[in-house]
Write a protein that binds this DNA or RNA. Structure first.
Lengths: 223, 223
DNA sequence: CCTTTCAGTGAACGAGTGTGCACTAGAAAT
DNA sequence: ATTTCTAGTGCACACTCGTTCACTGAAAGG
């Protein structure tokens, strides 16, 4: 493997294989979009790609491993979003950070709609192996968010427990928002985004007034 | 149809039919529990019930109509819960209403686990007809909650828009909590419930401090 | 040049799928 | 006692499914 054809337009064997692999992933993602991954068959994917069913095994050794590959790919998108949403310069006001985060979310959801929809769906439906893989990744995201929240000014008097609870709330709200953004077309998208901004502001305001308010209201016998 | 058999133990034809119908619904619910409704076949259900596949058509004229029947049944449980959570006597304190609501939710989820899991799953996965039916029912719940929130003391200065946003946030948090309660066994159930209580308190505290805090922080150009 | 590698082919298998149709048996109605 | 009704049966059809196996042909390597 030193030199392969001077002509520009030819495709090397590895490139060709990668192209087919991508086509399989894309086709599976699209087919899973109606109902769930559990109902897409190896043969449907093969037909959509334009290869014979048995050729599928040259790229994945089972439908499950295809699902896991889709999980990996989808969380690459999600991690990219989290990284951007946590850019330090965005932490100059609590309302601002909420609005900025929602904007980043809405932007990424629009650009990677299929991946977000996949995660939201297969997290609860879908083959068991896929469900478990997604759950692990989400827990990882929650944990990362919690450590980041701890660095926020004003997070001084939150317990570790409260931090985890808060980050769990935010992540689930974001997942729900992503779902809502996908359901609503680009037509109602801005309405959903506005609602999400309000929700996140509410959560942050609630978190800021949290400890003091709990003390004030007297939680009594509980805990 | 005036008098049918004085003996106690005999089953009338209608009773027998209803019993089979129930068995079909239960079997389908259980089979759908692993992955989703889309992957359960008419024959699997028939085998689980103990009837021949074609006998299925005596009770439902398609798998889709079975799905719709399960949606109806599941939302009977959910409505019962909402009715209980909104009992007027529970509105004597904002922290209390949060705790009480979560308790009611946890209780109902434990008692109707299969139904809640079904709604949470098939809402995003599952056949299109089922998805749409569930979405309509949830929107209805959100609307009902919004009109109830409007009656709360201190809800005076919330716009209709804010009310809808808030009720949507609460409903999605409850759906997420229901999912979490199901995932966690009864072992970690109380931990999840505690987290949910905290979340709902945060949301309510945030809502109470909402308008004033938004004014104080100066939202600038953003609406 | 010849040889090796390997993505894609095509036929075949055993099992599972939804659905149609003629039927049976027993409860209900007459 | 006789007829009607119907939940459930049994068989058959034409599919689709995942997986196997020997194969082909062109690119890569020697």
């Amino acid at each position: 493997m030193h030199y392969c054809g001077g002509v520009d337009e030819v495709e090397s064997r590895a490139e060709r294989k990668e192209r087919t692999r991508r086509a399989i992933l894309d086709a599976a993602l699209e087919l899973a979009a109606e109902s769930s991954l559990g109902v897409v068959s190896l043969r449907q994917v093969a037909k959509a790609v334009g290869i014979v069913p048995t050729a599928f095994y040259r790229h994945f050794d089972s439908v499950d491993s295809l699902g896991l590959a889709l999980v990996d790919e989808s969380f690459v998108s999600l991690r990219a979003m989290l990284r951007e949403a946590r850019r330090p310069e965005s932490f100059d006001g609590f309302i601002d950070v909420a609005d900025h985060s929602v904007d980043v979310l809405a932007d990424h959801v629009r650009r990677h709609e299929a991946h977000f929809a996949f995660i939201a769906r297969e997290r609860v439906a879908g083959p068991k192996v896929v469900r478990d893989a997604i759950r692990r990744e989400i827990e990882l995201c929650e944990h990362e968010l919690a450590t980041d929240l701890a660095r926020l000014p004003g997070a001084r008097h939150w317990s570790t427990e409260d931090l985890n609870v808060l980050s769990s709330l935010i992540v689930s709200a974001m997942v729900t928002t992503a779902e809502a953004l996908i359901e609503a077309g680009p037509r109602q998208g801005e309405r959903v985004a506005a609602a999400a901004r309000t929700q996140l502001r509410m959560v942050l305001v609630g978190a800021l007034n949290w400890r003091s308010a709990a003390d004030r209201e007297d939680v009594a016998g509980r805990r």
